[in-house]
């Protein structure tokens, strides 16, 4: 009991959270400035290209979030500590949001760049499958059972899901190149043909979003812990009423 209580103390947002938030606001503004004003407009695609900074940054952070799910799922299975399970769960939810951003910005870009809403391009397809996979993960997390069991099942799925990602990507890439070996996806690849200012902006927005990811993670954890606290207080009151 004491063990668990100590885990759940510090229910007020931590100082780190406030500091991160204080950094994030100016950083986001700077990122906006860099994206919309500082970087030149791409010659071929025009202003639509700006969406690419959000698109790629979200994609990287979605992968990062799912990687965190994987790490903390493993940690949970070994240590059975509840906070690890909460981190994995919150990270999975944020990852799904980032994936959804990728999947909405992607088609908008594709519409103007390739004149089609959707192509079965490896990265897009992999992201779509990722979205389905982690929605399934969230469904497991919402199963109606005691948290220890749910955490165990979710951790197992979090691990095999992440192990699957590279294989999915490889197989789709292979499939794509066998079907029509056109290199239209190359234009999107980071680095490569990018102008230095664009590259800098891209990296800057990746880090900005990563900071936002951490803030959301902390916030999510904070909300989850509050929920637990409320549940515990409720149980205590109910026990009092019965006896």
């Amino acid at each position: 009991m004491t063990n668990e209580q100590s885990e759940l103390t510090g229910i007020v947002p931590s100082k780190l959270h406030k500091v991160l938030l204080a950094i994030a606001v100016p950083m986001t503004l700077v990122a906006m400035y860099l994206v919309f004003i500082w970087t030149p407009i791409e010659r071929m695609m025009g202003p639509v290209q700006k969406i690419f900074y959000f698109h790629v940054a979200s994609a990287w952070n979605a992968f990062f979030a799912f990687f965190i799910v994987f790490v903390f799922s493993l940690l949970y299975l070994f240590t059975k500590k509840r906070s690890y399970d909460l981190i994995a769960g919150v990270s999975g939810e944020i990852g799904v949001i980032f994936t959804a951003i990728v999947l909405t910005t992607g088609p908008i870009w594709a519409r103007s760049a390739w004149n089609t809403w959707w192509t079965w391009e490896p990265r897009l397809t992999t992201t779509l499958i990722l979205l389905f996979m982690y929605i399934a993960y969230i469904m497991i997390r919402n199963l109606d059972m005691e948290w220890q069991k749910r955490a165990r099942l979710a951790a197992v799925f979090g691990i095999i899901g992440f192990a699957n990602v590279p294989i999915v990507y490889m197989s789709i890439r292979w499939w794509e190149s066998n079907l029509h070996p056109v290199v239209m996806s190359e234009g999107e690849s980071a680095g490569g043909g990018l102008e230095p200012s664009m590259l800098f902006t891209l990296i800057f927005s990746v880090f900005t979003l990563m900071l936002i990811y951490f803030i959301l993670l902390q916030k999510g954890l904070y909300v989850e812990k509050l929920k637990l606290q409320v549940k515990k207080m409720k149980a205590k009151e109910q026990e009092k009423m019965i006896s």
Binding site: M1, E4, E146, W147, Q148, L228, K231, K232, A235
Partner: peptide, 8 residues
Amino acid sequence: KTIGEKMI
């Protein structure tokens, strides 16, 4: 043994 929030 703790199952859910309950200490059994």
